[in-house]
Write a protein that binds this DNA or RNA. Structure first.
Lengths: 408, 408
DNA sequence: AATATTTATTTTAGCACCTAAAGTAAATCA
DNA sequence: TGATTTACTTTAGGTGCTAAAATAAATATT
């Protein structure tokens, strides 16, 4: 009921052209037509408008001419300076700011140590305003406008209402944050779960192009997950879907940071591994409730070098992870489960137990054809995903703005 | 990439009109416009075509005139005889055949006892062909054509490839069934999981209209589930999503019919309850691995009347169900979880333990605003859903057929 | 009873957008 | 130099929508 009826084909086609250009760099009109199933006549018309609006440019022909007969292709590409977006990743005691241009390239990146757990909602608000203002003042010189901001947050967020519902990096809850930033910077503000940003980046990689239903599990201080269904992040009713870390391994099992018992996170996260190990093993001193990368690497090394206690701890973590993944397979039946995050450093020590657990839990029919893989972790991936998501979210508005700007 | 561009607005709008008429019965042109966000001029044009094609009729004005000034509305409605569909529900040792008309009304229903577990794939094929032929010969008199067939099967099916991957009612696996039926009856064949059919019916009820993300759990001999995301059944990569019954409660727990241990089904299904009770309680004799409705009612009565052993068994079942639901909440975050199926007969004996388990498992933030409810069970619901789904799936084809028929 | 008012449907006029086909441009090949 | 090939642009025509005007069919008012 209540389907829209206004013909949106021109807008759809224009957005498809912009997205193809962002994906592929420079593309000829005829290929844009083929890739998006529109006639080249329409591409001519769309690209003429976009040129007018200053959103795309014709690329000067290559000096070493491309081989082949016939009139050479005229490649068009996005004007990187047409707009820019900022992505802020909020993690425990650190924020990262990244500036991306209209073509999706990262132009600038900076990290700041911030005691996030001691901030109030207003403090956070003020801090973000200040950091964004500063980075804009320094970096936005050539850009026509700031099109959007993406806030990538660990934890439960409601993109729809722009509210941080709960984050392990913050000690407050239910903070509406998007609206005020949007008013302050006159642009749209996208609030995203960090795992969704990473999943979007991974899904765009050619290696995973054949996996429209993709589950990404992020191991680290906590355990995150993102579920892509037909390539789009699945959010649930109020944004707290895909809370894999707090799905159950053992009723009445180990204590989790959430306050309940038996969550996967209480076995497989950094803090759980370190907690289980700290009493039995000689490990670097430090805050054992928030182990540092160095502390975790020391523990991982023990397991990989054959220490039986460390191996037992990682095997139990792998078993918990495996049973958790079995539930994900039974409930989501994805094409691929991809395990990443800083915690993959210890994946080799968990892998065998994980696979045993999955096989113990599920018959072949329910495993289906799902592949289970892991991939190396890159701390910049979150913001790269955030940049792309922010651009995709703002393209329609950018288009509208540059139309009215030309008319005036 | 590769988005379609051909303008499908006329088809979309026509289908929206047909679906509104099926939902609401008789509707005036002006209301069809309002409900589907199209102008009444367009509705006039669409309804003129449909009238031509014999798919709709104008309803003669009511004898007691509707109140109010102005020109009275001319109601239009689907011609019930324009087409019909058949839905076959396949359960353990029983099949049900239902004939539905173009307006979605059930015209005929019949049940047959069939030893499903002894059938080969070819036997099943032959049986279905015979039953469908017979029912068509008897029931299809006034109908213009058989538009489609829906096969509602318990277990894992791939709608896309039309293959029954695995069903507790059958002893064979991986049987492609849709294609041969489609060739035999010259119509499209929809293969669906039975829980999806039921969920579609429930989702259409006004009481659940505000729950686009709906999880339906079916308790019975086995345990089924359907997940509706924005009102459409979620299927996963190859149709085996939403296998809630085989998600885990206890690693290394009770033995399940699937051959693995610790599945929810191994605690909460009819066979699991009866198995746990048979050794300790005086219950009607019979096949205790496939308890009858009468056997189950006897057991349920014991629990509801206060027998401590029966109560303990139902409490453990409720606890397993609760932990399973907790995982569903963490992973899907639906608006509503609706528990139904023949097994709701014992729900009162499970309910308290179930809620305790959910509260033990999840903090409030992850519970979110999800409601958990149960509803009475109606064995005809599956086929009603199948009829609706088959009609929705075939409307576009029906439209095309009656267009070419008129032209010739 | 005649006229005004209200509401529903149909007709008309015009717009937005697409495509196929024809026309033009810019290269290589012979 | 002209034929061929390929890319892009222009033209002509179609689909399908909407707003507004026209028409239809009822009730309300005087």
């Amino acid at each position: 009921m209540a389907l829209p009826s206004t013909d949106t084909s021109r807008l759809d086609n224009t957005l498809a052209v912009i997205r193809t250009l962002r994906d592929q760099g420079s593309v000829a009109r005829i290929d844009l037509g083929a890739l998006n199933c529109i006639s080249s006549a329409t591409v001519t018309s769309i690209s003429a408008e976009l040129l007018q609006q200053g959103l795309i440019m014709e690329r000067p022909p290559e000096t070493p001419r491309p081989t082949g007969r016939g009139r050479p292709k005229t490649l068009i590409e996005l004007d990187p300076n047409a707009a820019c977006v900022v992505c802020i990743k909020l993690s425990i005691n650190e924020i990262q700011l990244v500036v991306g241009d209209f073509s999706g390239q990262v132009r600038h990146s900076e990290h700041h140590a911030v005691p996030t757990l001691t901030l109030s909602a207003d403090d956070l608000e003020a801090l973000l305003e200040e950091k964004i203002s500063t980075v804009c003042a320094q970096q936005l010189k050539g850009f026509q406008r700031l099109a959007g901001i993406c806030l990538a947050v660990q934890g439960v967020v409601s993109s729809q209402s722009g509210t941080i519902i709960w984050s392990p990096a913050l000690s407050f809850r239910n903070a509406p944050i998007s609206t005020r930033l949007a008013e302050r910077f006159h642009c749209s503000v996208l609030l995203e779960n960090d795992a969704n940003c990473i999943a979007s980046v991974l899904a765009a990689q050619p290696a995973y192009a054949d996996c429209p239903n993709l589950v990404v599990i992020m191991l680290g201080y906590g355990i995150g997950m993102s579920v892509l269904i037909n390539g789009v992040p699945f959010l649930g009713a109020n944004g707290s879907a895909a809370e894999f870390g707090h799905s159950k391994y053992q009723p009445d099992g180990a204590l989790c940071a959430c306050g309940r018992r038996g969550c996967i996170e209480a076995y497989t996260s950094d803090y759980a591994l370190y907690r289980a190990a700290a009493d039995h093993l000689a490990l670097p001193s430090g805050d054992s409730a928030h182990p540092s990368e160095q502390q975790m690497q020391a523990l991982t090394q023990l397991a990989l070098k054959g220490d039986p206690t460390a191996q037992r701890i990682y095997a139990e973590a792998g078993r918990a992870l495996g049973f958790g993944i079995a539930n994900v397979l039974a409930l989501f039946n994805p094409d691929l489960v991809l395990i990443t995050g800083s915690g993959v450093r210890g994946f080799d020590a968990m892998q065998a137990a994980m696979h045993t657990a999955i096989d113990d839990a599920l018959v072949a029919e329910l495993m289906g054809t799902t592949r289970i893989e892991h991939c190396a972790w890159d701390r910049d991936m979150t913001c790269m995903g955030g940049i792309t998501m922010a651009l995709n979210a703002t393209d329609a508005q950018t288009l509208l703005d540059s139309q009215t700007a030309r008319e005036a």
